[in-house]
């Protein structure tokens, strides 16, 4: 019977390392942010009742009726509010993969693997453009 051998490449180990740490931090941030939000430990930009009273509307109509609700990067202008803090923690989850891909890109670069260095940074570029709202309908 063969003993288990790990065949993961260096780049995979590097990606896994940053992914594990970033995800653990993300889960902690999401939970903490939500506690601050729903228990109203900080003032809110929009009362919870107002959000719940309009969550049956289309997103565009919702923001028309509830103008202060977080959307895109607008949350950082009011980062001291409880609901914005919770929103920022969700935004963080959208950044984790980008961080991992940047690390993978540099490992591929060090290994002189041209194809996957290009693929990694091209993938980061697509996600950054989406995050910046350039290709994702942001304002």
């Amino acid at each position: 019977m063969k003993q288990e051998t790990v065949h993961a490449e260096k780049v995979q180990i590097a990606y896994a390392g940053i992914l594990a740490k970033a995800t653990t931090l993300g889960i902690a941030l999401v939970v903490l942010g939500y506690i601050v939000y729903v228990f109203q430990l900080l003032p809110l930009s929009v009362p919870i009742d107002q959000v719940a009273g309009n969550w049956h509307l289309r997103a565009s109509e919702f923001h028309h009726k509830v103008p202060g609700a977080p959307s895109g990067w607008s949350c950082f202008s009011q980062a001291g509010k409880g609901d914005m803090l919770s929103y920022i923690s969700i935004i963080y989850l959208g950044i984790v993969t980008m961080m991992c891909l940047v690390v993978a890109g540099f490992v591929f670069l060090r290994e002189k693997n041209v194809i996957y260095t290009l693929f990694s940074f091209a993938q980061v570029a697509v996600l950054v453009l989406a995050a910046a709202g350039i290709v994702s309908g942001g304002h």
Binding site: Y37, H63, G72, I90
Partner: peptide, 30 residues
């Protein structure tokens, strides 16, 4: 994880993510 991240940014920019709904869903599912 890569494809959903890309699409999630569209929903974030269009204001279609509410922490009030998203966090209990993510926590419950995990």
């Amino acid at each position: 994880s890569i494809n959903d991240t890309a699409a999630a940014w569209v929903y974030l920019h269009k204001g279609a993510v509410l922490p009030l709904i998203a966090v209990p869903s993510v926590a419950g599912m995990m």
